[in-house]
Simulated scan of single mutants.
Amino acid sequence: MYKIRSTTAILLGAFMLALTACKTYQKVPYFRNIPADSSVYSQGRVIPTVSYQALKIKPDDLLGITITTLDNSTAVLTEAVTRPQSGPGGVVSQAGNGFLVSAAGTIELPLLGTLQVSGSTTEQIKTQIQARAITYYKNPVVNVRLMNFKVTVLGEVGRPGTYFVNGEKATLLDALGLAGDLTIYGNRRNVLLLRDADGKQKSIRFDLNNGQALTSPYLYLQQNDVVYVEPGKAKAAANNAARTQTIAIVGSIISVLIVALTRIR
């Protein structure tokens, strides 16, 4: 009778453990509500996502600006004003460390003067510089890029830290990929995005178990965004289990020492 009860208890425990494991697993995969039927595997499926909006330049951003001209007759003028690097077929002028956008939202370019850039995209700034550069250079080619597009990823990820993004188009998933993805303990249902919005911190929550996260207007990141992945309950449980195990080991050692001392006496 005792053996039957013991076997029943073991099977019940195993069943409860399997249910718990299944429930925990459901919190791990991304976008679980996106169907995975046979047609998706063979034909694919279009998933509605938010459209990308070009980044707007802000004060304290750093812009890399390059003006290229093939007109060798302007070499003296270019060298005198913008310290170009000579190359085959022409002269290249480039800001070595970039141009810092002032608190007023402006940059100061040699020869071209002051430009208001805050609130504009790099493409709009390029057009603005092109319009001025054509006065001094023959057929100038202008390139403008954002040099300090960085995001910080903290919490339960493989490699927490601050990462610089190449280009200007990066999503929350890109940032998590740079940081080594979420650990098994990361709470995928409550990923926090912190963003500076006109001097105020704005917080946005993402549920990565749900495909609706792909439609969020905050999916595409902006410069200086912070992503925080909070630990799930499993992390706390693991820490508690480790602590309990340590306490049990220490208790056992103390018990052995007490018994040994008692026998010695």
Rank of each mutant, 00 (worst) to 15 (best):
V165E: 00
Y218D: 14
S216K: 12
Y228C: 02
N239K: 14
E230W: 06
N187W: 00
L221W: 05
Q212T: 13
A241Q: 04
Q222P: 03
D196Q: 15
A241I: 08
D225V: 00
S203L: 02
Y185G: 01
G177K: 11
K233V: 10
A242M: 14
Q222G: 14
V191F: 08
A237F: 15
F164E: 05
A242Y: 13
N166R: 09
I204L: 14
T246V: 09
T183F: 08
N209G: 10
K235A: 13
A179R: 01
I204W: 13
T244F: 07
L182Q: 03
G199R: 08
N239R: 12
N240I: 15
A170R: 02
A236V: 12
A213R: 09
D198I: 15
Y185H: 08
Q201I: 12
K202A: 08
R188P: 00
A241E: 02
K233H: 07
T171S: 09
V191Y: 04
L193H: 02
Q222I: 10
T244G: 01
V229N: 03
N209W: 05
A238G: 09
Q245D: 03
F164G: 03
V229F: 04
G232L: 06
I184P: 05
R243Y: 12
G199M: 07
Q212W: 11
L194W: 05
A234S: 15
T171E: 02
G186V: 15
V226M: 11
I204F: 15
D198W: 13
R195Q: 09
T215Y: 12
A242E: 11
D181G: 02
P231N: 01
L221Q: 01
D174S: 03
D181Q: 07
G161E: 03
N239V: 14
E168L: 09
R189Q: 14
Y220F: 14
Y228M: 15
D196A: 12
G177C: 06
I184L: 14
R189C: 06
A197K: 11
K233W: 11
Q222C: 10
G199V: 03
G180M: 08
Q223E: 05
V227Q: 03
T244N: 06
L208G: 00
A242T: 12
R188W: 04
G186N: 12
Q245M: 04
D207A: 02
R195Y: 07
T246L: 13
V165S: 00
P231L: 11
I184G: 04
D225A: 01
G199P: 05
L176Y: 01
P231A: 05
T246D: 05
A213F: 09
N166P: 09
Y220W: 13
T246A: 11
L192A: 05
